[in-house]
Amino acid sequence: MTALEVLAPGVLALVEDLGRPGYAHMGVGRSGAADPGALRLANRLVANPASHAGIEVLLGGLRLRALGPVTVALAGARGTALVDGRPVGRDAVLEVPDGGELVLGTATRGLRTYLAVRGGIDVPPVLGSRSTDRLAGVGPAPLAAGDVLPVGAPPTDLPAIDLAPVPTWPDEVVVPVRPGPHADWFVDGLATLTSRAGYRATPASDRVAVRLDGPVVARTPRAAGAELKPVGLVPGAVQIPPDGRPVVFGADHPVTGGYPVLAVVRSSALGAMAQLRPGEAVRFVLAG
């Protein structure tokens, strides 16, 4: 059996795929990769279906040993990576020999790296997905030293990889939003959210939500102190709690929430939100 042995997990390493849709009525959200575009790219590089599970690594520090030769790819955050002590590239196809060690250094740009292995991480699925949902407590436990992750059978018909859509890192993170269902609860709420002043991610951010610091979004006098019955939430919902500082929900968001939703981030920008490091700036714009 081909497998990957975890020698050190780093800050946090999770098995993730594209999630488990269809269980919100049971209180279980979709979850999945916080930056699904990066996981799709890593899977594409090793000729996997996009739905195959990989490893999501927060900041870096992951050390793996190959139990059998494996083909892997790294996408997402930027930073150093070594195979048996030799520097290797990201967004590229990498061969790790039997017994070889892959080490991820600390990310220098972005927050989350995705490792895909040809054949996928073949841990048992839960509700149709191999994703770890930190909020619902569903799926595999966070990786720990000594874990052995089985690798699935590689695809039999390997396509040629002639072009990989490798994203560039922008100088300024600009995120498009649509008006949310409760925009009328706020005094110029969308104008405040999309002002040039922008926001910064706080250290309290995680897979559940990116919590922001910046201009306070004020309620209208009519909505001041008003209560809202719990309503369904989606990834990218921009909720405004009583302190007026936006919270942008991510992959492990709750299925319902009780604070008004001012706006919703376009799905194409969820990956950019997931890669924000504490203290980094983000600016919102109304989607055309």
Rank of each mutant, 00 (worst) to 15 (best):
L59D: 03
V93R: 15
E101R: 15
T156W: 07
P159G: 12
T108L: 05
R90A: 09
P167N: 07
A33Q: 06
P159L: 11
G85S: 09
V96I: 15
L102A: 08
G85R: 03
V126D: 00
T168L: 13
W169P: 00
L163H: 15
G119C: 12
V126G: 01
P125W: 00
L67N: 14
A145W: 11
D147H: 14
L158I: 15
G139S: 02
G99D: 09
V138Y: 00
R78N: 01
P165E: 12
R112E: 01
T80K: 07
G110C: 08
G85A: 06
R86S: 13
A81V: 12
I55A: 07
A144L: 09
L41S: 02
R78A: 14
L58S: 12
E95C: 00
I55C: 06
A92I: 05
V72H: 05
R118A: 15
R118Y: 00
T108C: 01
R130Y: 05
T108D: 14
E56N: 09
N48K: 13
A47C: 15
V117K: 05
P140L: 01
R65M: 07
G128L: 06
A136E: 08
A107M: 10
A73P: 12
L41M: 11
A53Q: 07
P69I: 13
L41Q: 07
G79L: 05
L45Y: 00
D162F: 12
R130V: 05
G139P: 02
P167T: 07
L59Q: 09
G79H: 09
E101M: 03
L115C: 02
V70M: 08
A141M: 01
L94I: 15
L59E: 04
P150C: 06
V117G: 06
P142T: 01
R44Q: 15
G152T: 11
G54E: 11
A38N: 02
A107K: 07
D133R: 01
I161K: 04
V70T: 12
V148T: 15
T156F: 08
A47P: 06
R90P: 00
P124Q: 06
D98H: 14
I121P: 01
L59S: 04
A92G: 02
L45G: 03
G61H: 12
A136I: 06
V57S: 09
H52D: 13
G32D: 02
T71M: 10
P167W: 02
A160W: 09
L102I: 12
L111V: 14
D84I: 03
A50W: 10
